[in-house]
């Protein structure tokens, strides 16, 4: 049954206050319902939900490793199919788990076409081990392995386009979503679960601890990512973009200046050249996905 309040992901977990990954976990289970088997990679969500012998999960849940998350999900999905069972299989991983370490098995599972949903909660770095950069870290974000300083303006590489990579595997449904719009997130999880074959949902999940903002701002920051065009919320069906959230765009600095990881772009003095490069990333997103709402004069 769906719509059960809070009960499938219990209170008492050890996520930081205001953690978007925790909010995502309970929202995902709310959408998926009881007949779901969850496979988790290593990372914050696994660690904060399940400090042995306790667990916050009220559905069958398994943690194995980083590398084999999608392989475990593949095996469960194949076994359920053989037994004629109808439970849904969800594999969840952070961005490090999904974009980098588990990529091989993720690609394999999508290529083989298993019926499961892979969800990446994207907090844009390896948070559980102390904010190291990943393939999902945005350009210029300061992390412990891409520290901003005299010789660097932070992470030198753009974010990897994992949704496009998985769509290129022939995935029937690929979507991006965010904790800023929870009903939309639920709808996308439901759609992914109801679509046969390997589906992917990437959930933008701001991390107050790693990004450097106050815990009450998690949703406001997530909303600004969408409103500036730095995060685009969309759906792809059979490789085609079919739905996009349109916005009246704000300048990127409204998003950047709220976060410690971008502080070096404003202090000790404003770095207009770098801010312009980030604005160009948002402008390219806006053009590629046609997100701009043009207001009539």
């Amino acid at each position: 049954m769906t719509g059960e309040q809070c009960s499938l992901f219990e209170s008492g977990h050890r996520a930081c206050g205001g953690c978007a990954a925790a909010l995502a976990a309970r929202t995902i289970l709310d959408a998926a319902g009881r007949d779901t088997i969850v496979v988790s990679a290593t990372g914050c969500m696994e660690v904060f939900s399940t400090p042995y012998p306790e667990t916050a999960w009220n559905v069958p849940w398994i943690h194995s490793l980083f590398e084999n998350n999608s392989a475990v999900a593949s095996g469960i999905s194949a076994a359920l199919k053989k037994q004629g069972r109808k439970e849904k299989v969800i594999a969840i991983g952070g961005d490090g788990a999904s974009f980098d370490i588990g990529m091989l098995c993720l690609s394999g599972a999508f290529e083989r076409g298993h019926d499961f949903v892979y969800i990446c909660y994207d907090n844009e770095a390896y948070m559980n081990t102390g904010i190291q950069r990943s393939g999902a870290t945005p350009y210029d974000a300061s992390t412990t392995t891409s520290p901003a300083g005299k010789c660097s303006t932070g992470n030198p590489r753009p974010k990897k386009d994992l949704p496009a990579i998985l769509a290129a595997h022939g995935a029937p449904y690929v979507a991006t979503a965010t904790v800023a719009y929870l009903p939309d997130l639920k709808k996308k999880i439901r759609k992914a679960l109801d679509t046969e074959g390997p589906c992917y949902v990437q959930v933008h999940a701001p991390c107050c601890t790693g990004w450097g903002f106050e815990s009450e701002k998690t949703i406001a920051i997530a909303r600004l990512a969408v409103e500036t065009g730095l995060f685009v919320s969309y759906e792809m069906e059979n490789g085609q973009v079919t739905r996009v959230k349109k916005v009246v765009r704000k300048p990127v600095e409204e998003y950047l200046k709220e976060q410690r990881r971008f502080r070096h772009l404003f202090r000790p003095q404003r770095n207009d050249a770098e801010i312009a490069k980030i604005q160009a990333i948002a402008d390219r997103n806006a053009e590629k996905f046609a997100i701009d709402i043009v207001l009539k004069k």
Binding site: E10, H13, E54
Partner: peptide, 9 residues
């Protein structure tokens, strides 16, 4: 672990 035991915390 038993389901939902995080409530102990």
């Amino acid at each position: 672990s038993r389901p939902g035991t995080s409530r102990a915390n």
